[in-house]
Design a protein around this nucleic acid. Structure first.
Ligand SMILES: [Mn+2]
Ligand SMILES: [Mn+2]
Ligand SMILES: [Mn+2]
Ligand SMILES: [Mn+2]
Lengths: 219, 219
DNA sequence: AACTATTTTTAGATTTGTCTAAATTTTAAT
DNA sequence: ATTAAAATTTAGACAAATCTAAAAATAGTT
C-alpha cells in the first residue's frame, strides 16, 4: 500500500495515542498531536477511513483497523530501531535522536530495516526504554512503574522514561541517571512529593515531577 | 535554507547533468532526468532562480550558483555515503543501493552525516566508484578511462562503472568483475569491438558495450 | 531570408494537505 | 428539558507540484 508522509504520521499518532488511552482517538487529540487544526485532522481521518486503515464514525473518533495497526507499528518499529542505531553506532545522545528518527522512520525498504535490526543485534527497546515492535507489529512490554510509586526502602532498576523532553533527558544525564542503573528509595518528602534516592553510592534528591517521569522495574 | 524534496531532487539533477556536460542545463534534459514534463521543469527552474540556487535566462537553460552547487553536492555526498553504508554495513549489493539512497539522501542532520562518514572511515568513493564530495562540495576525481579505450597488452584496475543499471551490475557480478580487480587486454575484435580480457587467471570476452561502461585506471 | 521543426514558456486545470470561518453535533450544566 | 459550552464537521480558499494544450522563441534547413 502506498502511503504518503502525512498519512504515515497521522497513523503513527493514532497508534501512540490509543496505546496510551486504549480508547478511540478524538479528532482534537489527534490534531494536537499532529500540531495542526481539527479540520485538517478530520480531512485526513476521512482519507484513512476510506482506505480502511481506521474505523470512523462521525463525532466518535477513530480506531486503527488490523491493517492500520500493522502499518503504524511498522513505522514505530523503524523509528525506534533508528534511534538505537543513532545512539549505538553514531554517538548520538538520547536527547538528540528523536528528530532524526522522525525523518528516518519513513524510509521504505524491507531489507534495510531487517538488516538494521541484525546490525543492532535485535534490540528489544529503544534508547528511552520504549519497546520495539517486531515485524508483525507485536510488542512484549515489560512491567514498569514510575519511580514515584516506590515506597521507602524499595529498590528498582531504571528501565525507561515517560517524558522524552530534551530538558528532562539532559537533566537525567546531569545527575548521572541512565537506563540500567539501580536505585533505592531512602526517603520521601510528603510536602512536595520529592524523593531521596541512593544510586552509584550517592544520595540525591529527585523532584516529584522527575520521579513521575522515570520508569523502574522493581527488584 | 529550507528546501522541499522536489527542489532538492531538481538541484541534484542539475548537478549531475552539468557535471557531465559542463554546459548550462536545458529544460528538456532536466525534465527527462526528473521524469516529468518540460513545463513542470520550467516552473521549478523559476522557483530555484528566485531563491538564487541557479542562474536562469529564459530559453537559455540553467547553471548552478555557488550556493546551489554546495547544496546539490551535499545531497550527492549524502547519497553516496549512504550507498557505502548499505554495502559495507547492511550487506546490500551494489545493484540494490540506489533506490534506498534516493530516499536517505534527503534526511536532514549535519551530525548524522558527519558521524556516518566517520563510521565508514571517510570513504572517498561510493560502491560504483563515483567520488564522494567533501563537506565543502569539493571532489577530487581520479583519472579513469573506459576499458574499451585500452589497447592490446595494456593493463588496468577496475575503478568504476559508467552505467549503474541493475542488469549491468548484475552482469559484472556474474562474470566476477568487481572494483579493485586488475585486467589485461588480450585481444580486441575489430568486427564488434568486443575485447578478450585476462583477470583472475581466466580469459573472458566482454562486449563493446560492457567495455565502454567499465572504468579502469591504467597500470 | 523565409520557412519549418524543435524547444521552451505560459495559461489554466488538478491533487494533496493545509487553513479560517461557519454550521452542526455532542456533552455538560442548569 | 433547555440551554450553554465544547468538540467536530463542512464549506470555501490557498500554496505546492504536477499535467495538458496552446503560444512564443530558438535553431536548423533550404
Ligand atoms: Mn522518538
Ligand atoms: Mn524513543
Ligand atoms: Mn546512486
Ligand atoms: Mn552510486
Amino acid at each position: 500500500m502506498l502511503m504518503t508522509l502525512s498519512e504515515e504520521n497521522y497513523l503513527k499518532a493514532i497508534y501512540n495515542i490509543s496505546t496510551k488511552t486504549g480508547e478511540a482517538v478524538s479528532t482534537n487529540l489527534l490534531a494536537e498531536a499532529m500540531e495542526t487544526k481539527a479540520s485538517s485532522a478530520t480531512d485526513m481521518i476521512k482519507k484513512l477511513a476510506e482506505k480502511d486503515f481506521v474505523n470512523y464514525k462521525k463525532y466518535q473518533g477513530v480506531k486503527l483497523t488490523k491493517e492500520g495497526h500493522l502499518i503504524a507499528a511498522s513505522i514505530v518499529r523503524k523509528h525506534r530501531l533508528w534511534e538505537v542505531f543513532l545512539v549505538e553506532k553514531l554517538n548520538f545522545s538520547w536527547d538528540e535522536v528523536h528528530e532524526v528518527a522522525e525523518q528516518l522512520e519513513h524510509i521504505k525498504s524491507d531489507k534495510l530495516i531487517e538488516e538494521l535490526d541484525a546490525l543492532l543485534d535485535f534490540p528489544r527497546v529503544d534508547p528511552h526504554g520504549d519497546p520495539i515492535p517486531n515485524k508483525y507489529g507485536e510488542i512484549q512490554a515489560k512491567k514498569k512503574v514510575p519511580l514515584s510509586s516506590l515506597k521507602v526502602g524499595e529498590k528498582g532498576v531504571c528501565v525507561g522514561v515517560k517524558s522524552t523532553a530534551k530538558e528532562f533527558l539532559q537533566y537525567l544525564d546531569k545527575i548521572e541517571i541512565s537506563l540500567g542503573i539501580e536505585l533505592e528509595i531512602i526517603e520521601k518528602e510528603a510536602f512536595d512529593g520529592s524523593v531521596i534516592v541512593l544510586y552509584k553510592d550517592q544520595q540525591k534528591n529527585i523532584s516529584a515531577m522527575a520521579a513521575a517521569n522515570l520508569y523502574v522495574r522493581k527488584t
